[in-house]
Amino acid sequence: MPDFTKTAVVAQDAAVAAEIAPQPAKPEKARSLWGDAWADLRRSWIFLISSALIFILLLITFFPGMFTGTDPILGDLAKNYLQKPRLGNIGSPDWLGYDQQGRSVYARVIYGTRASIAVGFGTTLSVTLLGGVVGMIAGYFGGVVDAVLSRLTDVFFGIPFLLGTMVVLNSFQDRTTWVVIGALGFFGWTQIARVMRGAVITTKQSDYVQAAKALGASTPRVMFRHILPNTLAPVIVVATISLGVYIAAEATLSFLGLGLTGVSWGNDISDGGNQIRVAQWIMLYPSIMLSITVLAFIMLGEAVRNALDPKMR
């Protein structure tokens, strides 16, 4: 980490410079933006907490069996769903209580993670790619290309997000993860495209981009080395926030009966809503997991954005 105090040195005056900034014994290794960002992230507690949370969530997603041996679908009507959770029995099927059909809430929370994470990740990834590419092309090339792409974006932006996805999902009988991701992504990419386009247009006019062009830099080089890193910050912020939004949207769709057909937090929140007065835990625990997941991703986005801005160091 370079020390700011050392920069106020007189460059021309070697004597003074040597005095204030003693030369290191051996030359430092060449560094890059990504290397520095990583070095910075490793010391950010926001990053550490959020990535620990996300790591656990990913572990649950891929190895739910590690956390519970109970089947989330198999219901046992003999279990009384009005019986309070036994919070002492950590990890046991009755830890977080049972739902109406006698299924373990804990098992459903564990198995529901996969749906939420998959939809959140998948949708965010697809909208960021799609919106990012559209925004970059529209912003960089301008003119007719921009006019066409921007109007297209406006058309999609005009469609109410949830209504659009509901109409699309309603026409599917079997709503798999891919179908839900596709529907959410199809209507969701416009925000990223707009943010990206604006950022590209601003960055495109900056002198350092002109300087790179003056050196003879190719279009991909200008795009990926100069424009992209300087437009990532707003895109990452929007993407991480929307990741939470998509997880919530999936829950909303499930609540309305138009989400995933399998196990998901959204479905459980929807079901539990009917019993909120007698058995709050059916809704409470999936909701807590949803909140923690959304929060973890927003924190991660914040940490990454700060790390990619050398001025924040």
């Binding site: 105090t5 106020a8 040195v9 007189v10 021309q12 005056d13 003074v16």
Partner: peptide
């Protein structure tokens, strides 16, 4: 004039102009 205007967080001791 050699050097740079001082950083206001670390104004040189004595006469602020002395390093230059």
């Amino acid at each position: 004039i050699k050097g740079l205007p001082p950083n206001l967080l670390r104004i040189p001791t004595g006469c602020a102009f002395n390093p230059r």
